[in-house]
């Protein structure tokens, strides 16, 4: 008999510049882990590339990053690409992106399941409950909470406390340490799921771009279809790495303005 598991959608925010096999591996590891808790049923995964307004060095156009993510995930039957965040003119806070997706998921869920009022007038879902949404991230993500000016306190509360994190670590105790070191994270530790990746696999998009600039092979690090796309559009050159070279990262600039206003 299938026990009542909480349906769960995993959302990954990031540059995806470009998407790598390792990004997709994170989804697989996280799903296996959440299933092994016995409490969750992962029903979907969302890749949400950041908008061009993020201001990160070497960030190529969202249009390309979206196209590559779509090619890479063509063979996945549970992870999809969502363009909403990438289409926002300005950078969107992670909390806001999560709010958007959760709203969308709830609307879809309510439309498909429907509700009815029971005899006492309470609204009761007809079938399965609506999914929860959690943020899927790498271990380095927890470190970003420490960076002064990068996060608004209420956003940390919302992302970690209200939604929750599934954090894949690359061996080592850094995630545990990061949770321990932050009062906010520690308070919400039950909402932070740490997944250990036993096999060290350090393919980063930075390394992929470096190899591409140097005309070295990236085969088997990113899907063939993405390699083909990169060659077709001549992405990731020495020139493209200089995009946003002297620009402050949008979150930092935004927060700085905010603190001046205070």
């Amino acid at each position: 008999m299938a026990s009542r598991r909480v349906p769960l959608v995993l959302l990954a925010c990031g540059s995806f510049n470009p998407i790598t096999n390792q990004h997709m591996r994170l989804f697989e590891l996280a799903r296996d882990h959440m299933h092994s808790t016995g409490q969750y049923q992962v029903v979907g995964g969302i890749v949400s590339p950041v908008s061009d307004g993020y201001g990160k060095q070497g960030l190529v156009l969202a249009e390309h990053r979206i196209a590559m993510a779509k090619l890479a995930l063509r063979s996945s039957n549970w992870v999809t690409v969502d363009e909403w965040e990438s289409q926002q003119p300005d950078w969107t806070e992670t909390a806001v992106t999560m709010r958007y997706h959760y709203g969308r998921i709830l609307t879809e869920c309510e439309q498909s399941t429907g509700t009815h009022n029971d005899s006492s007038g309470n609204t009761v879902a007809l079938s399965s409950p609506c999914p929860q949404l959690k943020l899927l991230c790498g271990a380095d993500f927890l470190e970003t909470f420490k960076v002064p000016g990068l996060w608004q306190d209420d956003h940390v509360e919302e992302v970690v406390g209200h939604f929750g994190l599934v954090c894949v670590s690359r061996g080592g105790l850094e995630p545990e340490r990061a949770v321990h070191a932050s009062d906010t994270l520690l308070r919400h530790r039950r909402n932070i799921f740490l997944v250990r990746e036993w096999v060290r696999n350090e393919t980063s998009a930075t390394e992929v771009r470096r190899a591409l600039r140097r005309d070295l092979s990236v085969k088997y690090l990113i899907p063939d279809s993405v390699i083909e796309y990169i060659h077709q559009h001549s992405l990731y050159t020495h020139d493209s790495e200089r995009i946003n070279e002297d620009t402050a990262l949008r979150p930092l600039a935004k927060q700085a303005v905010k603190s001046l206003d205070d």
Binding site: V199, E202, E207
Partner: peptide, 11 residues
């Protein structure tokens, strides 16, 4: 191999 990639068949 600068980027550690420890996928082993055993794993």
């Amino acid at each position: 191999e600068w980027v550690t990639n420890e996928i082993s068949a055993t794993h």
